[in-house]
Structures are given as C-alpha cells and as structure tokens.
Design a protein around this nucleic acid. Structure first.
Length: 209
DNA sequence: ACAATGATCCGCT
DNA sequence: GCGGATCATTGTG
C-alpha cells in the first residue's frame, strides 16, 4: 500500500504492478476500466477512475500512429515496454495513452474519459468550469483536468508523478467502434472502444457492437 | 522548406 | 450536426 497526499486527505492506493501491463492489449484496454489514474503536480494531486478506453493495435491498424511500424521520435515509446505513457498533441490538446504489448510491438491504449475522484477543486480551476460532468469526459479534457502534459511523455505509470492504481471492478463493459477516425478505412469499424456501461462520464453515447 | 493532416473541443444552429 | 481554432508532426520535394 502506498500513500500519496492530496491537499485535504491522505489517499491510500495500491499501484498496479509491472505484470498488470503485460497482458494482451485487448485485455488490458478492458482491465484498465475502473482503475484510478493519478497525477501529482506542484499544484496538488488529482485523480479519476478510468471509464473509457480505445485500443490501437499497431502495424496492422490503419488508425494507429504506429501503422506499418512507423517509427519516429513521436512514436518511439510505443516500441518499448508496456506500462509507459505515450502522450501526443492534437491541435491544442494533449492526449495520453498506456503503452501495451511486448517490446517492439507498438501498441497503445488511449484513455478517453475518467470519472473525477480526488482533487476536484483543482480540476475545476484547470478546466475553468464547475460542471462536474464536463471536467473529464473526453481525452483532451481529462489531461487538462489532471495536469497531464507532454512532460509525461515516456513516464512510467508505476511511480510518481503519473500513476495507475487499483480502483473498482466494473459491473458491465460495453464495446463499440472507435471515435474520430473516419479517414482510416476499414479500421474505423473495428470494435476497439471500451467503456463502463452506463457511466455518465463516458465521452459520447454510441451503439454497442 | 512547405503543405497537409488530424485518436479534439467549443460554440452555434 | 457543423465549422473554426490552431499547431506539432509528418511526408514530400
């Protein structure tokens, strides 16, 4: 058991260990649901339960940045060990992925939404809104709320400042198509998006597959 | 050196 | 639903 401190309360957590990240990308994308995503900064600690993920399968997946094993400065961390953060910039937003798969297999899981847990006042300040539902219900929103930036590129989720810990086991998981990849041919229909069924913080409502 | 392209968000209709 | 903001990354010449 590790203890981290929030502005108000000590937070008792059980960090996920290295072995957790060594399952297949499809399993990991689902098993990340319900886990706690935590970020410590000089401003304080903020955390939320992961409620929506998308798997990006690498060389064979036209929607993945690592499609056809494209290996550049940006995609480099995906070729490394599982359990590392792959952050990248999209327009004005930073998005965060969990690198998965074996070494040299550039797969990753995009965290698309979390449910706010601790540090909610800090999240409201960062996001400039008081509406709880609007704090972290999208991949660009949650990074801003939690204070995740390009500084976290290549950082391990096994230790501060960026961490993933045990949370809860979702009752039911929904599966659907990924979002925002209309121009990636057949890959756009792959059933690689997972979310906690019925959770209010999921980014968009969509039919299950 | 340059132009195209988004794994998004927000505000408006 | 739609379009604009806005910029790093990437491929091409």
């Amino acid at each position: 058991m590790d203890t981290f401190f929030n502005n108000e309360n000590p937070l008792q957590i059980r960090l996920k260990t290295k072995e957790f990240y060594q399952q297949s990308t499809l399993e990991l994308a689902q098993n990340l649901l319900g886990c706690l995503l935590i970020k410590e900064t000089s401003e304080g600690v903020a955390s939320g339960y992961i409620v929506e993920t998308e798997a990006y399968m690498g060389p064979e997946d036209k929607a993945a940045h690592s499609f056809q094993n494209r290996r550049t400065k940006r995609t480099e961390v995906m070729f490394g060990e599982a359990g590392i953060a792959y952050t990248y910039k999209m327009h004005t937003h930073c998005l965060v992925n969990v690198v998965s798969g074996e070494k040299e297999k550039p797969q990753a899981i995009l965290i698309r939404a979390v449910e706010p847990f601790t540090g909610i006042p800090l999240m409201k300040t960062r996001r400039q809104t008081t509406e709880l539902r609007n704090l972290t219900n999208g991949p660009g929103k949650l990074t801003k709320a939690l204070g995740i930036t390009m500084d976290d590129y290549g950082s391990s989720f096994l230790s501060p400042p960026l961490m993933i810990a045990e949370g809860y086991i979702p009752e039911s998981i929904s599966v659907g198509k990924r979002i925002g990849i209309e121009n990636s041919g057949e890959a756009k229909d792959y059933p690689l998006r997972f979310w906690v069924k019925g959770n209010a913080f999921v980014s968009r409502h969509q039919r299950e597959i």
